[in-house]
């Protein structure tokens, strides 16, 4: 997808349709359904394995993100059942608690220009956390989502050190009353899952939903491989970049106006 066309020409839509019809003609039954879901940009079937035909991403328009608004952060904490920095604990400091997403404020001292933006796991195409993981617990799904398989994580914390975005956290304390759809536990590394439990059900990540319904609508979520998706359109029409693009991690989270 390096040579993205500059606008959605009808020819492109036709091409997608042709591709879909070809696939539909070649496959049958279950995979037919899968193929149609893909071509139409619909969520995958529940039992379909995710594939590299999708690349999930989020575009953050930093220009729209107001200083002081924490709708995305609050939604993440609520969805994931993270009590977070607000609650202290016996053996660890509150500032050691998990933060899967945080608002970062920046100011250019020379010009006085100030900027606030949410930073979470950047879901890199080349994730350093995966490179350093000794057990294979840190991994990247075919559709680009970077996760910790906590069943395999031994809590060595290499990934936490390797991540240039400081996006991974460590669970220091035993956790109780987890959300049934979001298991979390002591002794493992964790981080933003891009709300994979929602995406697999065809829903948007909690932060993006909250940003639109309570915040300023600065976040766009979607499949960057689908030329007809809103996010692909915005990436095509605007100058966007990644945090620390110089590192070559090629994040799935991109920013506008930074």
């Amino acid at each position: 997808m390096t040579e993205a066309p500059h606008n959605d020409t009808p020819a492109l839509a036709d091409e997608a349709r042709r591709r879909f019809l070809k696939r539909a003609g070649l496959t049958a039954g279950f995979s037919l359904f899968a193929g149609s879901a893909l071509a139409a940009g619909l969520p995958k079937a529940l039992d379909e394995a995710t594939s590299s035909e999708r690349r999930w991403g989020i575009l953050v328009d930093a220009g729209k993100c107001p200083e002081g608004c924490t709708a995305c952060v609050d939604a993440c904490f609520e969805e994931m059942g993270i009590e977070g920095p607000r609650v202290g604990d016996n053996h660890s400091r509150p500032d050691q608690d998990s933060q899967w997403i945080r608002k970062v404020s920046l100011k250019n001292e020379d010009t006085g220009h100030a900027l606030a933006l949410p930073v979470m796991c950047q879901h890199c195409t080349y994730p350093p956390c995966v490179d350093v993981c000794p057990t294979g617990a840190s991994f990247k799904r075919a559709d680009g989502i970077v996760l910790v398989d906590r069943h395999v994580c031994i809590g060595c914390r290499y990934c936490i050190m390797a991540c240039p975005y400081k996006a991974r956290c460590f669970v220091h304390e035993a956790i109780h009353d987890q959300e049934p759809y979001m298991p979390r536990g002591k002794g493992t590394a964790e981080g933003c899952t891009m709300c994979v439990h929602r995406i697999d059900h065809g829903m948007k990540p909690a932060c993006v939903v909250a940003c639109h319904e309570e915040g300023a609508g600065a976040m766009t979520f979607g499949d960057t491989n689908d030329p007809e998706s809103a996010i692909a359109g915005k990436l095509r029409d605007n100058t966007t970049s990644a945090i620390r693009a110089d590192l070559g991690t090629e994040p799935g989270i991109r920013y506008m106006g930074i």
Partner: peptide, 17 residues
């Protein structure tokens, strides 16, 4: 130690749209 051991599990953040 990670998984909830009781039933339930409505998503906390529900979208209106």
């Amino acid at each position: 130690s990670c998984h909830a051991s009781t039933p339930g599990g409505e998503l906390k953040v529900q979208s209106k749209e």
